[in-house]
């Protein structure tokens, strides 16, 4: 059973970012990537899954159950977490408070503490700065908070929207390594990116979105050498 199963989805956000009849599957335990340039409809797809922009038509299923049009907090309750585009810190909250918000629906304080420690082990820099206001941190550090926050809820499926946007090459490389690590722990990853080469290098399967339609799909290794992918971007 697919982690996420999207059928004939039509949705629009901001008018420029429109989806026409998109169907795709996110396989459990794998990294599935969605590639496309700006305005291709990537953000709209993420927003539709999260219930932030209800779709006009089509269905979204999570582990076989229909979640189309559910309010966001109920989608999150089904085991999805998101690392949003642009990291989206709560700027006037501390690192710890930001991380705790990732576990907002977790009521077990011991479990929250355990996950906090896990995030601090993954990112020792955050442990040093746990009381610092997130808005005063560098882009790379905010990316760590954003990834850590996405893991705090203990998700089955993680949506990651353009994690490399605005980061230095060193952080980008580090980010991709961490995303692989997340997959290796058994978490299903749906990775939305513009960075073709590095994304395909860590993904298992990929889709290419252009002008709101899927123009190519396949095993990541095959897509990497596919002319259509390059056409979609540069053509």
């Amino acid at each position: 059973m697919a982690g996420i199963e999207i059928r004939n989805l039509r949705a629009a956000y901001d008018k420029a970012d429109v989806l026409h009849d998109v169907s795709l599957d996110v396989a459990p335990g794998k990294i599935t990537c969605l590639l496309g340039s700006n305005g291709a409809g990537k953000s709209t797809l993420i927003r539709a899954i999260l219930g932030l922009t209800p779709p006009n038509a089509g269905t979204i299923k999570l582990e076989g159950e229909d979640i189309t049009g559910l309010p966001t907090h109920k989608v999150i309750a089904r085991g999805i977490a998101a690392i949003p585009e642009g990291r989206r810190m709560f700027p006037k909250m501390s690192v710890t408070e930001n991380l705790r918000l990732g576990a907002y629906q977790v009521r077990d304080e011991a479990l929250i503490r355990q996950r906090l420690e896990k995030v601090f082990t993954l990112f020792p820099r955050l442990a040093e700065r746990r009381d610092q206001l997130a808005g005063t941190m560098s882009g790379g550090e905010q990316a760590m908070v954003s990834i850590g926050r996405g893991l705090m809820g203990g998700p089955k499926i993680l949506l990651i929207d353009e994690p490399s946007l605005g980061l230095s090459p060193l952080y980008v490389k580090e980010n991709f390594r961490i995303i692989q690590g997340i997959r290796d722990e058994g978490i299903t990853v749906f990775l939305v990116e513009q960075n073709v080469r590095q994304t395909l290098a860590i993904s298992d399967y990929g889709y290419v979105l252009s002008g709101g339609k899927l123009v190519a799909q396949g095993a990541a290794a095959d897509l990497a050498s596919d002319e259509a992918v390059h056409e979609a971007y540069f053509g």
């Binding site: 999260l50 932030l52 966001t72 907090h73 999150i76 309750a77 998101a82 949003p84 989206r88 709560f90 918000l101 990732g102 907002y104 629906q105 926050r149 809820g153």
Partner: peptide
């Protein structure tokens, strides 16, 4: 919006 995404 991010608050919603956190499950609030």
């Amino acid at each position: 919006e991010t608050a919603r995404t956190m499950g609030i």
